[in-house]
Amino acid sequence: MPMGNGLQLHELRFAGFGPFRLTVGAGECVGLSGPSGAGKTRLLRAISDLDPHEGEVSLGDLACSGVAAPLWRRQVALLPAESAWWRDLVGAHFTSVDEAWLSALGFDQAVMAVPVSRLSTGERQRLALLRMMENRPRALLLDEPTASLDADNTLRVEALIRNYHRQQGVPVLWVSHDPAQLRRVADRRFVLENGQLLEAGPQVAP
């Protein structure tokens, strides 16, 4: 697995959690599960520099502390479990959206003229993924990206992310409570429990 543009956590600590050491290689997808409250979301927030933390995170040669935070977050993109919207229309949240990505998730350009308030939770979540990908991030942090989706749309999202991270050689850290999903998408799987990252074997959990 190439590590040149991999995502690395160096003794990362936050809010009583850690230290975490982890490397996600370029083009690799690491799955992360664990009980609620174990710190999975907090870990992703610390990696994206949204919460104060100690230690360092790097993406290839780029250290988080060495670049402006907005630039870091465009490169190391976090998709939260619940999307938030601040304009009335969907299109007001996009600058240029990739047609192929839109159709891969079951939309067309017409969705840009739709008021956000008329979208279902699942539609919002899929569009939030596209909105995040518009920045062409070099690493993806996904917090239960398909939790509110039906089976078909879950597979669509998985396929889009898989294609993107493999074609672009992008490291992915994917949080999910669905062991079957993690077996489908992740090259390696970890469980976050009692403040520790434990690598899970193939026999872990249904």
């Binding site: 977050r73 938030a84 601040w86």
Partner: peptide
């Protein structure tokens, strides 16, 4: 959540 979403988008 909106403010943090916008921060996350850079």
């Amino acid at each position: 959540s909106v403010l943090e979403q916008r921060l996350l988008l850079g």
